[in-house]
């Protein structure tokens, strides 16, 4: 029996002026899988996941998240959907003016926390998320006091705090040294196992792709050019595909 698709994208088109980034792009993300979207810089990978989360609007095509077409969503419905879909930004996007604790509490305050909610309960959720990424000791630090790898982990903890069903990673290992990059990749795997989360990972870091991917989709010239498992694609005879694995 085929696994259930949690994200279905059908004939998605998005352009910026004359630059047609996505052309009839279609793909599916199945429950519990890590799907890597691979492509050259500027090929529209980040645009794709920003369309999924509703930060960008496609010209046409449909995006179904957990079975519902988000194209007709109003702001309230979009916010509700975003509780179930976490997003890890390439630049981490931690709020500079807030401590790590406040950064993690921010999405909680928006979605879950009531004024009457026990402080200890909130602290517990924050500490759980930080423990998952191995940085419980940084709770009262400012983002500026953390290294690049630590920031990435904190950003991941902030994404995990709402326990999303789907996580979108935008180049999670970019700008990190190979060792830290490997640690982040292993963390993505750990998150997949612990939360049974389905993920789309945008990357062109082959080590990260090798560790995290269950399936790889190649985005070339705005289209889904090829898809398959990492080992399968790395042995492909198509030059365009093989070039990525050299």
């Amino acid at each position: 029996m085929e696994a259930k698709a949690v994200i279905e994208i059908d004939k998605l088109n998005k352009s910026f002026g004359d630059n047609h980034v996505l052309r009839d792009f279609s793909m599916k993300l199945y429950r519990g899988e890590n799907l890597v979207v691979l492509g050259k810089s500027g090929s529209g990978k980040s645009v794709l996941i920003k369309c999924i989360i509703g930060l960008l609007y496609p010209e046409n095509g449909t995006i179904k998240v957990l079975g519902e077409d988000i194209g007709n969503y109003d702001q309230k419905q979009l916010d509700k959907m975003r509780v179930k879909v976490g997003f890890l930004f390439q630049s981490n996007a931690l709020y500079d003016s807030m401590t790590v604790r406040e950064n993690l509490e921010f999405p909680l305050r928006r979605h879950w926390m009531k004024e009457t909610q026990e402080r200890s309960e909130v602290d517990g959720l924050v500490m759980d998320a930080l423990t998952d990424v191995g940085l419980a000791h940084t709770v009262d630090m400012m983002p500026s006091e953390l290294s690049g790898g630590m920031r990435k982990r904190i950003a991941l903890a902030r994404t995990l705090i709402l326990k999303p069903e789907i996580i979108l990673y935008d180049e999670p290992t970019t700008g990190l040294d190979p060792i830290t990059g490997r640690e982040i990749s292993e963390l993505i795997l750990k998150v997949q196992e612990k939360y049974n989360a389905s993920s789309i990972i945008i990357s062109h870091d082959m080590n990260c792709i090798g560790i995290t991917s269950n399936r790889v989709v190649m985005l070339i010239e705005g289209k889904c050019y090829a898809e398959g498992e990492y080992g399968e694609l790395s042995q492909s005879e198509d030059e365009k595909v093989r070039n990525f694995f050299i």
Binding site: R82, V83, F87
Partner: peptide, 20 residues
């Protein structure tokens, strides 16, 4: 402040967190 929040995607992160 807002300019640096924009270029470091903090404003997008806020939107994704369900905040206007």
């Amino acid at each position: 402040e807002l300019g640096s929040m924009r270029v470091t995607e903090q404003i997008d992160a806020m939107e994704v967190s369900g905040t206007n």
